[in-house]
Design a protein around this nucleic acid. Structure first.
Lengths: 175, 175
DNA sequence: GATATTAGTAATTGATTAATCACTAACTAA
DNA sequence: TTAGTTAGTGATTAATCAATTACTAATATC
């Protein structure tokens, strides 16, 4: 087996971790669960990630990066910007639900590096969105960005705690 | 010592639990921490609460009840309703910050009874708010309620993860 | 076919912690 | 004073789990 296989194995463990974390949260996920889902032994996880925390951090960071990349790829006329970003976010919620769940989980993990990652991720998303809203000449951009992020986060929450009616009475999965 | 003292002791343990949970989250809070903050021995906690989970549930339930009671006490003319409810929520965030933090923590605790309590609490708050918005003749009440709740929750989140600029650039503590 | 390397595991450890148990000291009432 | 009750603690337990260690089987290389 060449290098790519090793990288694939790491990727498979990361994906398994993502799934189990999204299902059981950070603290109730054991490295044994992750290993089982990845089809390997529990200690072998540690050949790819030094700690459980590191594995979670890599997954969480990827989730934030993907959101940012998704927003960066949005091209729209000023008056269509918000609608386009909402659509992009909705698509992401469908294509990568586990990464969306990870954001909610990250919120109340008190380990400092994870809190820092969450803070940093949300901060960067806010900054970038604000820049776009401003460039589009949207009125009260700070307020609009907060509402946009708030509705997006509530959408993740509604999905994670399985309470769809929390968002717009559950009529759509939209933010 | 009469009965009231026993009730006071229970209340003190509950308050200690609230503080420690709000600071360290659910899983990183030990019953020893709570006992230390309450000035008693660790096993004595269990004379008042059967399990750590039960203690958390009582605190979380109280947090949701207080929000609901606060909203119920809001009296305002239709065109002032939203502003009044925001003001009431802001006051609550200042007077009972730990209970607000508990909501965020409850979101990603995967133990079933706690998830159920969170779901139920948010659901009831949404229902009541929607009723009030409708009675005030607010247009698109479902959407407005979602935005209202979303901004309130983001406010709790911003406070819990110590990222004030997440809400309206950090200019105020408002929702 | 011997040697080295890679991929992987079984077994163990060490720390943590919720919860129980067995106890004692202080008060209360007859 | 003694019997009973209440308030409280020290010591222990039983389970869990991240992380390490020490090993083996397979594969590639010369």
């Amino acid at each position: 087996m060449g290098r790519s296989s090793k990288e694939e194995r790491r990727e498979a463990i990361l994906e398994a971790g993502l799934e189990v974390f999204a299902e059981s949260g950070y603290y109730n996920t054991t490295t044994a669960h992750i290993a089982a889902k990845a089809g390997i032994s529990q200690p072998y996880v540690f050949k790819f990630f030094k700690t459980k925390e590191e594995l979670f951090l890599v997954a969480l960071d990827r989730a934030f990066e993907r959101i940012l990349d998704t927003f960066k790829s949005v091209e729209a006329s000023p008056d269509q910007l918000v609608a386009s970003m909402i659509a992009a976010y909705e698509a992401l919620s469908e294509s990568h639900p586990n990464e969306m769940a990870l954001q909610v989980i990250g919120l109340s993990v008190t380990e400092a590096p994870i809190q820092a990652c969450t803070r940093n991720g949300l901060s960067r998303i806010r900054e970038y969105t604000l820049k776009r809203f401003r460039a589009a000449g949207i009125a009260k951009p700070e307020t609009e960005v907060t509402t946009f992020l708030a509705r997006g986060m509530l959408c993740n929450i509604a999905s994670f705690i399985d309470l769809p009616e929390l968002v717009d009475g559950g009529k759509s999965i939209g933010i």
